[in-house]
């Protein structure tokens, strides 16, 4: 079954310790919702706030995330879903969509020899 990375973008600095009780409650019920929609979360990670990020381009090391933006990557999970319609429905149900957004990207599998 196809797998997708669902990348969560939240308002900077996206500190998981600052999540509101309302948000946490929505997150609590999310796994259930994903299953109802026909998807399976394979694995997922939350990130420390973007203030802890360090970026490197060439040999220049910079404090902070890659691009200064209102929204930063807050976490991601790997979703198994039968097709993009299911993946998008799962992504839409994520509470991050309320004040940020999510990006859905299919995982790359090298073509068979």
């Amino acid at each position: 079954m196809p797998q997708y990375a669902v990348i969560i973008h939240s308002p900077a600095p996206a500190d998981p310790m600052d999540l509101t009780p309302d948000y946490l409650a929505l997150l609590e019920g999310y796994g259930q919702k994903v299953a109802e929609l026909g998807g399976t979360i394979v694995t997922g990670f939350g990130l420390q706030p973007s203030t802890t990020a360090t970026s490197i381009r060439g040999d220049v090391v910079t404090d902070g995330p890659f691009t200064e933006a209102k929204e930063v990557v807050a976490g991601f999970f790997i979703l198994e879903a039968p097709d993009l319609d299911v993946a998008l429905a799962v992504a839409k149900a994520n509470p991050a969509c309320i004040d940020g957004g999510v990006e859905v990207r299919p995982l790359f599998t090298p073509p068979a020899e």
Binding site: P2, Y4, D83, L84, D85, V104, P106
Partner: peptide, 14 residues
């Protein structure tokens, strides 16, 4: 092809 957009008529709800 890569994102697997389905080849089907959407369900009534959509």
């Amino acid at each position: 092809a890569a994102a697997r957009i389905p080849y089907r008529v959407p369900a009534a709800a959509d």
